[in-house]
Amino acid sequence: MSRFKKHSKKGTPGISTSSLPDIIFMLLFFFMVTTTMREATLKVRVTAPQATEVQKLEKKSLVSYIYIGPPMQKKLGTDARIQLADQFAEVNEVKEFILKEREAKNEVDRKFMITSLKVDKTTRMGIVTDVKQELREIGAFKINYSSRKVRSMEFN
């Protein structure tokens, strides 16, 4: 009988935590592989319009972003502004920005570069057209109108 009672005298054994670092490292690697660095802190509000015929942008390193939308800070007004990298910019600064981006890329990759326009859906086309004209002039012909994928469009 005493044979069976022996166990109950010992307290519950502590859970071994020696494999905890391994588990955390696995999680860490998962996130490192599946995510990409944030490109910029947004200073303008961008709610992308909806579309059904969207394509995924592969090769994130070859994409330059131009943000257009009303400023986040209310005191800056509600007119749409352009944001390049981390700061507000004017239309005439777009060329320099894209040329700099191009300069930084490998020569082989340059012709695959694509400019993604992240534009708020309430923006008027005037400013977008101006940016497109600038892009045309420096030969950045491939553009992407960033939009969210939906199953079907709702027209009101």
Partner: peptide, 12 residues
């Protein structure tokens, strides 16, 4: 992942 409508602009 960024998604959108891809277009080619005409040369100036």
């Amino acid at each position: 992942v960024d998604t959108g409508i891809i277009r080619q602009l005409p040369p100036p």
